[in-house]
Design a protein around this nucleic acid. Sequence first.
DNA 1: TGCTCGCATGTGCACGGTCACAATTGTGAG
DNA 2: CTCACAATTGTGACCGTGCACATGCGAGCA
Lengths: 348, 348
Amino acid sequence: MSADLPKDRAPSIRDVARLAGVSHQTVSRVLNDHPSIRETTKARILQAMEELQYRPNQAARALSKGRSRTIGVLTASSAQYGPARSVAAIEDAARRQGYFVDTANLGVADPAAIEDALEHLLDQAVEGLVIIAPQERVFDVLERLDIAVPYVSLQSTGKHDLRALAADQILGARMATRHLIELGHREIVHLAGPQDWNEAEARMRGFLLEIDDADLITNPPILGDWTADFGYFAGQELLRSRDFSAVFAANDEMALGLLHALHDARLKVPGDVSVVGFDDVPVASHSWPPLTTVHQDFDGIGRLAFATLLREMGTGTELPTAPIAPRLVVRGSTGPVPVSRLPLLKRY
Amino acid sequence: MSADLPKDRAPSIRDVARLAGVSHQTVSRVLNDHPSIRETTKARILQAMEELQYRPNQAARALSKGRSRTIGVLTASSAQYGPARSVAAIEDAARRQGYFVDTANLGVADPAAIEDALEHLLDQAVEGLVIIAPQERVFDVLERLDIAVPYVSLQSTGKHDLRALAADQILGARMATRHLIELGHREIVHLAGPQDWNEAEARMRGFLLEIDDADLITNPPILGDWTADFGYFAGQELLRSRDFSAVFAANDEMALGLLHALHDARLKVPGDVSVVGFDDVPVASHSWPPLTTVHQDFDGIGRLAFATLLREMGTGTELPTAPIAPRLVVRGSTGPVPVSRLPLLKRY
DNA sequence: TGCTCGCATGTGCACGGTCACAATTGTGAG
DNA sequence: CTCACAATTGTGACCGTGCACATGCGAGCA
């Protein structure tokens, strides 16, 4: 029978100590797995904890240790498949290590909003940050605020690569582009992501590098906003104005919207136009035709991000830095360049 | 010029107090907007804070006030569009009110994992919980643990409706089903979600109610797992074994997978088969044909969930409880029952 | 002038842990 | 049996804030 006088507040380590007939410090030792404690004492204390339904107070612990065991995740458009998936993986990994995860979402990404979200996370005394809002502006703010905690970033580019973890976007884009070139396509359009997104820029760079290596020419890419709606309208526009036999879209959503526009125009995919996406979202394999795309291991990236952050934070075990390779998944939306266009090719 | 002796630890209110020449309590009053403070004093303190880059310590505040200003979000499959969207909305609303959001993801949903995730959140002394893992098991665990904090649940059903906030799933399902019936369909198949998901059950119930009201008969629904892959395989199976002219899928992903199977079989949608989904994910309007589906306002649901939780927690202002109505969006995947099937209908 | 009252501010402790250090008990060798 | 030393346990201060309760001070009033 428990003799707990309901003191309305949660039981503390001293309450446990009293019940077990020891000092509060001994209880603390049990909590922290201190080596020298007599087994019988430990058992008695554990039982007292059980009886009182004791639960350690994280705030008190954070206060006295000066460590919050919390990491912050800053995301943009976290409703998108890739980021959402990575966030879930990070949370999972963090929880396994006893860390808490605090998230802040960026609706609009103007500097004020970014700073606001960042301040919010810093208020919580996070020990590290994961940035999944890979926009250059975010890094500018990060540098300006002179953040005291380590951070890593998902999705990479240029100057911040030391802290960036991601599938190699440039390589992925090159794989997609080369695939189209190998199928004989010469007039390839790139439907890019928003310019201020690092990964959009990296994919565009990969595309241009590959085009260049093949001695092809291309029109300037179309700058989109990642959405299927944009892909649809861009497709309508393209059909009206340009001559092309293949499109490399910077993500699957835009590719799917594009597919819609092509269907509307009664064009055959891949008979008339080939389409490649990027990400390999779950429905990509069920579009009509199934979408050829570049697969990324979002879970793996998330896990790796947390592991790396842990290392940066000084805790955590060293782990082999497995590079994350993107993978081209060839499905039904790409095929040889249409025969009708072959004569045209002679021009090049 | 600041005269900060770098004491390696973050500045506290006492440091600010010393610099401003007041007591720590006066600084605390500034932080908490206490009414009686001389303007000049307040200004002096604010400047001292600025100079020291002072940032209040949440852990200390939580400890002394006994309030963490943190809410917990328990999600299952948070990478799915709807939940991800609602979570983002919740975080946004919470941040606006100065609350922190701690998230725990449920990979597998066995009771041990549920309890684990819940314990994790409770360890952080959350003041409220939002459950977006609408599985009956979760509520069982919640009841068993006898949680001391208020909670609300997204997606509803039966016995927990008092705390449930969601678009009316039954109504949505009825709307989708009625739409098919009004188009003349009599052999309608329901591709349901996993039975242990409340919303899957609600949608199935809505479907059956509407079928019943129209005096139709139907085969037992097929129990799926929400994925497009399942929709695809279910479609192949259906084509092999059953006679039907329309399918109501419990979510868009399964509907899209089903569409794929129908395309593979060279069937026309909606010429041969009509398909309705549920959720209205962004790509639903760009499938081929564009998917008729039931739209839910995930953002609104998330915001309402947080507002309600705030009310339950005793803070927060009363707000009009706007019921969240789902909305049928008719697109290209549904049409009149095929002429070829009309004679068959005479049987009924 | 003395008293009350309200504003502005200060003092000291509590919150629930951890840390550094002291005290006590147990163990084995000589 | 005694002593050195390790194992185990206890004591008190401290982490940064907020609360309860003084205290000082000027204004208003009899």
